[in-house]
């Protein structure tokens, strides 16, 4: 990626405030007992804030991200993003809210190999429209160009760093107010990881998005406002 290429400034959005209270998620075990996966008494994040979730594998970071992104619903408690309570919203409401407010970056990129980079970036625009707007397409091209991702090539021919940058472009296409990343640098070498980390933060800045990152990457965590540890489903500040 060339550092001289300017990243196109997304339309500035305003991040959302997060307020979590008495969050609890349990799973029924085969023997009938209930296992607590997450138990978070109180957790708040200001609009536009950035937080890193650290902790051992299996501690509950990804589960917490799933709840905060509305992918799963908590059994108890509330997750309020600017007053919208995800814990009380139905599946369709959470889908709609997520589509409008959240950009997600995954550890393993999760691109669709048979589509080219532009089509991957534009994929979320297909969910509610037949045609992609010229503006979105132009933005995708610009963004990929700025991130140094070859457009028009099948993504399975891209390097891992390019693939993750493509996934990031997909996450920010809808100008999300919330950016969630699950180990975004874990699959990359240190150089690519540093570039991707810097890119995420730059984009979150440009968007004004609230950012939550689960990471083992100390360098990335150090650039966030705060790092919280997740241990056995509980948060330790």
């Amino acid at each position: 990626m060339s550092s001289e290429r300017p990243i196109p400034a997304p339309e500035r959005s305003v991040g959302q405030t997060l307020s979590v209270q008495n969050l609890r998620l349990t799973r029924r075990e085969p023997d009938g007992s209930a296992r607590v996966l997450l138990d978070v008494e109180r957790f708040e994040l200001a609009a536009g804030g950035r937080i890193a979730l650290a902790g051992a594998s299996g501690a509950g970071k990804t589960t917490l991200l799933s709840l905060l992104g509305g992918l799963e619903r908590a059994d108890e408690g509330s997750i309020r993003w600017d007053g919208f309570d995800l814990a009380r919203a139905g599946s369709a409401q959470r889908d709609r809210w997520r589509r409008r407010n959240v950009g997600i970056v995954f550890q393993e990129f999760r691109l669709i190999d048979e589509l080219d980079a532009v089509e991957n970036v534009l994929l979320p625009t297909r969910f509610d429209r037949w045609r992609t707007s010229a503006e979105s397409r132009a933005f995708a091209h610009k963004m990929l160009g700025a991130l140094g991702v070859p457009v028009g090539r099948s993504v399975d021919t891209l390097s891992r760093g390019e693939r993750q940058r493509c996934a990031i472009a997909r996450a920010v296409l809808g100008r999300p107010k919330i950016l969630i990343a699950d180990e975004p640098t874990a699959s990359l070498d240190s150089e690519s990881g540093a570039q991707v980390g810097a890119l995420l933060i730059a984009l979150a800045d440009d968007l004004g998005a609230t950012m939550i990152v689960a990471t083992h990457d100390g360098g990335l965590a150090a650039r966030m406002d705060k790092t919280v540890r997740v241990q056995h489903g509980r948060i330790a500040f």
């Binding site: 709609r96 997520r98 959240v102 999760r110 669709i112 297909r126 969910f127 509610d128």
Partner: peptide, 16 residues
């Protein structure tokens, strides 16, 4: 299945 889960994670409604 992981592709379908991706669609949902990206905000695709069930109807999609």
């Amino acid at each position: 299945s992981s592709r379908l889960a991706l669609l949902r994670a990206l905000g695709a409604p069930r109807s999609y």
